[in-house]
Simulated assay, not measured.
Amino acid sequence: MTIKNSRRNFLQKITVSALALPLLPSYTPENLYTEPYQGSALRVAIMGLGSYGTRVAEAMQSSKMAKLTGVISGTPSKIKEWQGKYKIAEKNCYNYENFDQIKNNPDIDAVYIITPNALHHPQTLRVAKAGKHVICEKPMAINAQQGKEMVDACKKANVHLLVGYRMHFEPKTLEIIRMRKEGELGKVLFFQGLSGFTIGDPSQWRLNKQLSGGGAMMDIGIYSINGARYMLGEEPIWVTAQETKTDRAKFKEGVDETIQFQLGFPSGAMASCLSTYTMNNLDRFFLNGYKGFAELQPATGYGPILGRTHKGELTQPHITHQTLQMDEMAAIILQGKKPVVPVDGAEGVKDLSIIDAIYQAVKTGKKIDLKV
């Protein structure tokens, strides 16, 4: 089974031009999908027409504030297929050699980069230079230094750099964050994040360090890193980590199979997390406080997300994550909306800094101090 099918099946199984427009009304998820939207839409080109790019494109058909208007791909047959399916004009279709020409295309406001991790950095620099906003899949790059360069390039070009943190808009996730902020859980001292699945085809790019930048940590483990930060509402100050590798033929040097890691926070809270490519049924967040608890399982799959707290089951409605993400990101770019949890490039750099430190902790066996 290919990675595209493997990862998609895993997630399915566990879950059954843009200028600020201050005069536009600010829409919430509740009313955006029940009331007509008359404002401007963010015109988006998707770069990378694989399985996740397809998922985003399908979800965007229900978006109110974001519209698919262009494609960028190295595969001509995919471009033709998408042209017909999504009614994309020929002049809005590009390949990896000529996509710098989007600079002169008023039909494209932003490019959503959904390509292998190692390509995010150079592609973001080119999109920014072309004067278009960037939405980049996570991890934003393969290390924090690249991430900082991407942030600087977009700042210099005066364009937004957003990262595909779809869980930052998910209603049940946001309800737990609200409860923690308002003290309903009491002082919170522990977070557990379990992120993993059994990966398939050993020849895929996710198991190629040159393209992926690592292994499970760069793909699925980042969910627990990011989750620990937004669930606890703090930035970690130290990390320890241990790697387990049972198949060195499949998981070569620099490609992690399983890593357990621990994060310490200024309040005294701790996070205990697992990232793996060799175990299924792992998609759980647990937050424990003096007054109560919160649990999501599944916590990061494509949905519906399921959750409960000491007060009972979470019942917030499920909205297709990518639909909600694209509308919320359009509101950030077009209206200057401030999300509850940031999704900007600085947020992506923080996760990459922690990943860098985790790999350092694995290599040295030492506790690594963090300045996120």
Rank of each mutant, 00 (worst) to 15 (best):
R43M: 06
V44H: 04
V44G: 07
A45Y: 02
I46C: 02
G48H: 00
G48Q: 01
G50A: 15
G50N: 10
Y52Q: 10
Y52C: 06
T54S: 13
T54D: 11
R55D: 13
V56G: 06
A57V: 13
E58P: 01
M60L: 14
S62C: 09
S62K: 15
S62M: 11
M65C: 09
M65E: 13
M65A: 15
M65V: 01
A66G: 09
K67P: 03
T69Q: 01
G70A: 07
G70M: 04
V71Y: 00
I72R: 00
I72D: 00
I72W: 02
S73V: 01
G74N: 10
G74Q: 09
P76M: 11
I79P: 06
I79N: 06
W82M: 08
W82P: 05
G84F: 03
K85R: 15
Y86W: 14
I88V: 11
I88D: 04
A89H: 14
E90R: 14
E90W: 05
K91H: 11
K91M: 01
C93V: 10
Y94G: 04
N95S: 14
N98G: 06
N98Q: 06
D100C: 04
D100E: 14
Q101A: 15
Q101E: 14
D107Q: 05
D107K: 01
D109Q: 03
D109L: 05
A110N: 07
V111Q: 06
V111N: 06
Y112G: 01
Y112I: 03
I113L: 13
I113S: 05
I114F: 03
P116H: 08
P116Q: 08
N117E: 07
N117H: 15
L119M: 13
H121M: 08
P122E: 08
Q123E: 12
V127T: 11
V127F: 03
V127P: 07
V127K: 04
K129M: 09
A130L: 10
A130I: 11
